[in-house]
């Protein structure tokens, strides 16, 4: 299978996001988790449904977020609005995802 076919049929998240342009605001993540006693089902669902795969399990089974690949869609903010586990703001002006085609 050629690389081109790979691209057409989908690959790993890293390869997918590699095509995108980002200006990461180092040290100032715009999405944070406020951990509670237990991670809510909503927060856990984000490990599957975040379109950029920003939510991952840690070694001790909790949910962590690394928002460098975030496309700022806001899905996590809305899914977890009731649980209060997510603090969400837009990156500072000029930072974050920069769409080439949109």
């Amino acid at each position: 299978m050629s690389d081109k076919q790979d691209a057409a049929e989908g690959g790993r998240m890293e390869e997918r996001l590699y095509q995108n342009r980002y200006q990461v605001d180092e040290g100032r993540p715009h999405v944070k988790i406020h951990p509670q006693a237990e991670d809510s089902p909503e927060l856990q669902a984000l490990m599957a449904i975040c379109p950029a795969g920003c939510y991952r399990p840690t070694e001790n089974g909790r949910v962590e977020v690394v928002a460098d690949g975030c496309m700022e869609c806001g899905s996590c903010r809305i899914v977890c609005q009731e649980t209060g586990e997510i603090e969400w703001a837009y990156p500072r002006g000029g930072y974050g995802i920069l769409f080439k085609f949109g």
Binding site: A7, A8, R16, L17, Q19, N20, P51, A52, M71, C73, G74, S75, I78, F99, K100, F101, G102
Partner: peptide, 8 residues
Amino acid sequence: MKEYVAHL
């Protein structure tokens, strides 16, 4: 494929 995006 040159861009992958998500939006609401």
